[in-house]
C-alpha cells in the first residue's frame, strides 16, 4: 500500500485560552502501531480524541483512507457518517472500561451491540459470534450472560476490546488501555493486544504515559509535551537514543525493577 491509513495535519485544539495540542502532524501506515507518550497534561488524550472524532479540532485536518482508495476528511463527515465509521472501520478503547461498556447489560449483549447495529438479525449467530470473541480475549464463554460489573478490572478491559473488535475495525484508538490495572494483569493484556494486532492486521494509535507499555506494543513513538510533538521516531530510537532534553529526562526516569 502506498498511502497512509490516517494522515493528521497541523491539528490544533484549544480550550479557551489553553492550547491542548498545537500543530500536530503525523501519518499512520497500515499495520502500524504508533505510540503517543508524554506526561499527564501533555495533550495526548485530547489529540487522540480529536483524531478519533470524539472531539472536534479547531484547526488542521484528519484524513482517513478507505480500502477503495477514497480519502475521507473527518471534519467534512456528517455526524451519522462519522458514527457509522466509528462503529465499523474504527474502534476506541477507553482507559476506564465503564466508559466503553454498557454496564447494565450482559457481556454477550455488549459484544453483540455493534453486530446488531450493523444489521445482524439472527440471535443464534450473534450469540455464537459473542462466544467466539469472549474466547479470543480469554474470557470463559460461560460468563456470556453475566453483567460486566461482575467481572474483574482486567476482564472488563478485555471485554471492552472484544466489544470493539467484533466489527473487525481496521483502526483502533487506545487511551491508556492498561492504565488502571495491576501489573500482573497488565502483562497479560499487553500480550493479548499484541496478538490481536498481529492476527487481524490492526493499525493502532495508543496513548500511554508508560514507556514500558509503549516499548512492548508500538513500533513508532511520538513524544508530546505542552501540546506539541517534542520528538518522534522508531520506538527503540526514541527510547535508546533520545535527542531532546525532555525525552532524555523522560527515558532516564523509567523505574528499573
Amino acid at each position: 500500500m502506498t498511502a497512509p491509513l490516517l494522515s493528521v495535519g497541523n491539528l490544533t485544539k484549544r480550550f479557551g485560552a489553553t492550547t491542548a495540542c498545537s500543530g500536530i502532524s503525523f501519518d499512520l501506515w497500515p499495520g502500524e502501531v504508533l505510540g503517543i507518550v508524554g506526561e499527564s497534561g501533555s495533550g495526548k488524550t485530547t489529540l487522540l480524541q480529536c483524531v478519533a472524532g470524539l472531539q472536534s479540532a479547531d484547526e488542521g485536518s484528519v484524513a482517513y483512507h478507505l480500502d477503495d482508495g477514497h480519502r475521507i476528511e473527518l471534519s467534512t463527515l456528517s455526524e451519522p457518517a462519522l458514527r457509522r465509521m466509528q462503529r465499523t472501520e474504527w474502534a476506541f478503547i477507553h482507559q476506564h472500561p465503564h466508559l466503553g461498556l454498557r454496564m447494565n447489560v450482559s457481556a454477550g449483549a455488549n459484544i453483540g451491540e455493534r453486530l446488531m447495529a450493523n444489521q445482524w438479525q439472527h440471535y443464534g449467530n450473534i450469540r455464537s459470534e459473542a462466544e467466539k470473541w469472549l474466547q479470543a480475549v480469554e474470557i470463559d464463554s460461560s460468563r456470556i450472560d453475566d453483567l460486566p460489573s461482575t467481572y474483574s478490572g482486567g476482564m472488563q478491559q478485555r471485554l471492552q476490546i472484544a466489544r470493539n473488535l467484533v466489527s473487525k475495525p481496521k483502526l483502533v484508538f487506545m487511551d491508556e488501555p492498561t492504565g488502571g490495572l495491576d501489573v500482573s494483569v497488565q502483562a497479560r493484556l499487553l500480550d493479548l493486544i499484541r496478538n490481536l494486532v498481529r492476527k487481524f492486521g490492526l493499525s493502532v494509535v495508543i496513548v500511554t504515559h508508560d514507556l514500558a507499555v509503549a516499548r512492548l506494543l508500538s513500533s513508532r513513538l511520538i513524544v508530546m509535551r505542552n501540546g506539541e510533538i517534542i520528538e518522534e521516531g522508531l520506538t527503540d530510537q526514541v527510547l535508546e537514543d533520545p535527542q531532546s532534553a525532555y525525552s532524555q529526562l523522560l527515558v532516564s526516569s523509567i523505574l528499573q525493577v
Partner: peptide, 22 residues
C-alpha cells in the same frame, strides 16, 4: 434523539437480546 435521527437502532435489539439470553 440522535439515535432516532440517525436510525441508529442497534440498541433496541440489545434489549431483545438480553430478554432471550435471560
Amino acid at each position: 434523539r440522535k439515535m432516532h435521527a440517525y436510525e441508529d437502532y442497534g440498541l433496541m435489539h440489545v434489549k431483545l437480546y438480553e430478554d432471550i439470553s435471560q
